[in-house]
Computed example of a mutant assay.
Amino acid sequence: MAQLDRAVEPQGGGDDPASSGTTGRRTGRARVGAWCRGWRPAGRRGWITAALAVLLAGLLALHSSLPNSVGNLGSLLETFLPWLGLAVPLLVAVAVLRRSAVALAAVLLPAIVWLNLFGGLLFDKSSGKGDFTVLTHNVAAANSDPAGTIRLLNNSGAQIVALEELAGQAVPTYAAGLAAAYPYHAVEGTVGLWSKYPLGDVSEVDIKIGWTRAFRATVTTPQGPLAVFVAHLPSVRVKFDAGFTAGQRDVSAQALGDAIEAEHLKKVLLLGDLNGTMNDRSLAPITSQMRSAQGAAGDGFGFSWPASFPMARIDQIMSKGGLKPTDSRTLPADGSDHLAIAASFTY
């Protein structure tokens, strides 16, 4: 009986470490194999995800075809167009969870289109120090810390500073606080320009809103004269019953674009809050003839609004006439709901 017990005993195998490890590996490989076999190149699995991916690619590639006739939906989409890219990793995750090869392949379409549109913004394109630096900032009429904003401007290193949304009672505060660093300045309505270089030929630009929110001035830099336009285009709103209310801004954009096109000086800068992005077709009267410093020499998207969680670059520094941007950046938050932006140029 003792011999029989010893002969039968090994057949259990449950306490044999080698046997247990082999079984575990086999089980693991079986699970991986089953998961891999679960990927289906055909059939119904993942087709909804694939359709959503194709729709997303279409919105990105054909955004300019979405009509503005109903609630300015085209401009609304274009204002936040880069954020559509966030849907790509979500669709990838769904495709993996659904184990759908069709869906995963389809998600490549919006990924490629997004990279084609915005991939260049992901890299630092700055090329060193320029001849001068300019800055623009919507300081906000309800600025909670004007003294902090003045310190930010004085320490910015900019030679030319444009300010928008200057409340009447705040103008003396900014004028006094910036006088030492910027001996030349001009204020028209609610926009102003401060400069280390002499200013001349200051004149209002009528942007068709009934009061002054834009002007041009000649700035005489050591390298030569510049025409500098300072502008604050009308605000836009998203309303449930009216959509993207950008009509007045669009009229002003056309008027500003016409003024810039008629400028007699070759080298031109535009500094201001345009309440629109470079992707927004309604700013074409301006963007078609000027280039963005952020797009040419920035690092990242350079979103400037709202300061608490920037989602869009509606503040712009743009140039034409051979001015070359060498750097573009946003500044730290202050008491405004916008971030200040700065750019350097070679003449």
Rank of each mutant, 00 (worst) to 15 (best):
D334A: 07
A246C: 12
G247F: 11
L62P: 15
K208S: 07
L283H: 05
A170F: 11
L339K: 00
Q11S: 10
D16I: 09
G157V: 15
G322Q: 09
P146I: 01
K239T: 10
D327T: 00
Y174F: 15
Y197P: 01
N138R: 07
G148Y: 02
T49W: 02
A167D: 13
A106V: 04
P110S: 04
L193Y: 13
Q169S: 13
F303G: 00
D145P: 07
L323Q: 01
S126N: 08
L56P: 00
P82D: 09
V191M: 02
M278H: 12
T149C: 02
A57K: 01
A255G: 05
A175S: 14
F132S: 02
R151C: 05
S64N: 14
A170E: 11
T27L: 07
E165T: 10
A51L: 15
T173E: 14
L56Q: 00
R6L: 12
L270I: 14
N155T: 14
L76S: 08
L91G: 01
H63V: 05
Q223L: 10
S195P: 03
I48G: 12
D299E: 07
W47L: 05
Q316Y: 08
A343R: 02
A180C: 08
V171T: 10
A170W: 10
L270W: 12
L271V: 11
P17I: 07
A57L: 03
S156G: 05
Y182S: 01
G247Y: 10
G74W: 01
A284D: 06
R291V: 09
R25A: 09
Q316D: 03
V8S: 11
L121I: 05
A18T: 12
R99P: 08
F240Q: 12
A284M: 05
L331Y: 05
R29K: 11
I314L: 07
A7E: 15
S156D: 04
A246E: 02
A158C: 14
Q254D: 11
Q289I: 10
P325Y: 03
D131A: 04
G243T: 10
A7F: 14
A175C: 10
G148P: 01
Q223S: 12
S328P: 04
L66E: 08
T277G: 02
